[in-house]
Amino acid sequence: MIEASGLARTFTTRRGTVEAVRGVDLSVAPGEIVGFLGPNGAGKTTTLRMLTTLLAPTAGTATVAGHDLRTDAAGVRRRIGYVAQGGGAAPAVPVGEELDLQARLYGVPDRAARIADLCARLELEGLLDRPAQALSGGQRRRLDIALGLVHRPPLVFLDEPTTGLDPHSRGNLWEHIRRMRDEDGTTVFLTTHYLEEADALCDRILIIDHGRIVAEGTPDELKRRVSGDVVTLELADARPAARPGAPTAAEAGEGPHGQVGGVVRARAALAELPQVREAVVTGSSVRLTVDQGDLALPQVVRALDAAGVELTALRMARPTLDDVFLTITGRSLRDAAA
């Protein structure tokens, strides 16, 4: 549905040129819900505006909904829907008029029926005479989506569809987005900086940072591939403790009396396990990054047991997409987005 290669866009400002998007390759199959994830300023909206013909790429090519972006923008426009971040309904115009104009502009046959159907599906019935500015945030967003869907596009672009919505409206909108894929086979390409949104809604995620796609995969794949699971062990024997002025026991490898401490033995045992990628010791707790934690956990316990390391507690956490983002880009998406 989308094939893009080397798509790039630079802006010239008074301070020089800004490379907003530095060569994006992406491919979206029909019927997919693909999430474009990244902090503000990463190039999400710029990429989206290029794919929707609003912004000419400075380099690269793309085929969108079967038409070439550069040579047949009109063909692309007929086959896509676009819902901008801030929506596109004029505040003073009644909902019904907006939908009718949009349907006429696309030459939709049997407009009234199509609008009635959309309104029923997007819970907009009874609002046709109201100006957009009198709608609630959730209604407003559903109107924006209705405007983008009025001509039954096979591909729809949603830019930050749930930003600014309360959790209830957000969940409700996710339902609508899923249904438009499940019932009409619509391909959905959406941007978001909400991890839970990407996780809950998307079949596949592309992560963009500094104008480049830095990772892609299903939410599960990304979590598995990039960071593994996090296992935290609490050791009963936290010896040897560091003595002032002396190298720490962990560094020395031996305790103050030549006796090997629990931490050191634990390290040695864990080093034997290929699933353990990383171990960080803080006091008496050891934080492990392991591949496929659910399978690795019994082996970790067995290995430690064999080495005579006594555990007081054991926790495993599946990584979040935020961990993924942290691993790939070196910063937290939440911080980056703030």
Partner: peptide, 16 residues
């Protein structure tokens, strides 16, 4: 005002 409300982009995405 229309630019800010996104109306212009919405119309520019149509084949108009």
């Amino acid at each position: 005002a229309d630019l800010r409300a996104g109306v212009v982009d919405r119309l520019r995405v149509t084949p108009v």
